[in-house]
Amino acid sequence: MNPSLILRTSAPLLLWMPLVVSLYVLVRGHNDPGGGFIGGLIAAGGVLFYAIARGPAAARAVLRLSPVALCGLGVLVATASGIPALLTPETPYLTHFWWFPTLGVTLPLGTALVFDLGVYLTVLGMASALFCALVEEAQ
């Protein structure tokens, strides 16, 4: 698995580009097609490419956290997004709250987005764990 020089050099460019697309897909997920699952998968695709080009160890370095820890973080973030609902009396767990800060344009911010971020991280963690393990396997 010694990928060619071209792949290795193009690896960083082609890692960040899917990540950017995935964040874009994640953020607008609430109104247009997209969301946590798809975003996570696209980001994981980028990680897969980087793992193939530069090897799984480098891919893990990029992720800072190990993929499996990323999964844990994702689930934690998703669960945490339900906390505000827990604090307010008799609202069932995981009901989401929305604020509309107006910085020039009104930005709908809500705990639903936090939950989606949790989903995003979990899917990213799971898929990249899978890929790194597979690529290591293939070597």
Binding site: P3, S4, I6, L7, S10, L14, M17
Partner: peptide, 16 residues
């Protein structure tokens, strides 16, 4: 733009 930017890479990899 994306397709034109990445297709050389893909075709190189496939050819190799």
């Amino acid at each position: 733009v994306f397709l034109l930017a990445t297709s050389p890479l893909a075709s190189h990899a496939l050819g190799r």
